[in-house]
């Protein structure tokens, strides 16, 4: 009994210590990544390639999901607003929910599972097949050559994807609200423009998506770089990327929202 309890506590303790250890390594890794980022911009082709893989390849899922989320918002919003006789506020509801919250958050979650997991798997596989070691032995720093371009590719793609998601969502809301249900097009756009503030709503939304982009890309490249060099290790790292970055997005979203919209 006492033995079981003791081993339970030592299990908790060792897990905590290793978690803190990993966090410290992740922070040091982030520092190295930033320091070694010069070549990602000097040799912009490397980064362009990664924007292609994380941004362009995520376009379809982002555009389609944005459209559907906007359409659902249009339907649900209309149903709720119609009870209070204020259908003309539909545009405001759709736009504010998307620009402030759903755009950055849902696009971030999709980005984490589409691009983040791919980045982790790719780097993890390169590690497992000794490609990173080989590069290091050729006097090419793998963090500068492999990790940094993927990180910056993700950081650059994410805000653009979130903006596309929101824009598609507004169009989806318009399709449902105005084209299908038939609320007034003028008040849909007019009320939206009167209530959505550039600085307060749109700029804050863009800042959110930038922060999410940094968080997801960081988690993805770190999990890949830190994965066990086996097939199983890579698959576990990929799962961890999706879980960790999704939690990071939601947690950061709460912090950012409370900073932005309460102060």
């Amino acid at each position: 009994m006492l033995d079981g309890l003791l081993s339970f506590f030592s299990f908790i303790g060792s897990r905590t210590i290793s978690a803190v250890w990993r966090l410290g390594f992740a922070a040091r890794f982030f520092g190295m990544l930033i320091l070694l980022s010069g070549s990602s911009f000097r040799r912009i082709n490397l980064t362009l390639r990664e924007i292609y893989f994380s941004g362009v390849m995520s376009l379809i899922i982002i555009l389609v999901s944005g459209l559907f989320v906007g359409m659902v918002l249009g339907l649900q919003g209309y149903d709720t607003l119609a009870r209070y006789g204020s259908e003309e506020a539909l545009g405001v509801l759709v736009a504010l929910s998307l620009v402030r919250e759903l755009g950055p958050v849902v696009a971030g979650l999709l980005f984490a599972s589409r691009a983040g997991s791919a980045i982790t798997a790719e780097i993890g596989l390169m590690k497992a097949t000794e490609q990173l070691d080989a590069m290091d032995m050729m006097a090419v720093n793998p963090i500068a050559r492999v990790v940094a371009p993927r990180f910056w590719g993700g950081v650059i793609s994410m805000p653009l994807l979130a903006a596309l998601f929101s824009a598609m969502g507004v169009l989806g809301g318009y399709l449902v609200g105005v084209v299908m249900i038939g609320t007034d097009s003028g008040s849909f756009w007019g009320q939206m423009q009167a209530s959505v503030d550039f600085q307060r709503d749109i700029l804050n939304g863009v800042i959110k998506s930038m922060v999410f982009g940094i968080a997801v890309s960081w988690v993805a490249v770190f999990e890949g770089y830190d994965s066990d060099a086996t097939a199983e290790g890579v698959s576990r790292a990929t799962t961890r990327t999706v879980v960790t970055s999704s939690l990071a997005i939601l947690g950061l979203d709460f912090i950012l929202t409370s900073l932005m919209f309460r102060g």
């Binding site: 653009l160 596309l164 929101s166 507004v170 939206m192 959505v196 503030d197 550039f198 709503d201």
Partner: peptide, 16 residues
Amino acid sequence: IGVLALLFLSLRVGNL
């Protein structure tokens, strides 16, 4: 198209 989406949000959705 990403920048266009941002412009759309700023000008058509927002009040810029």
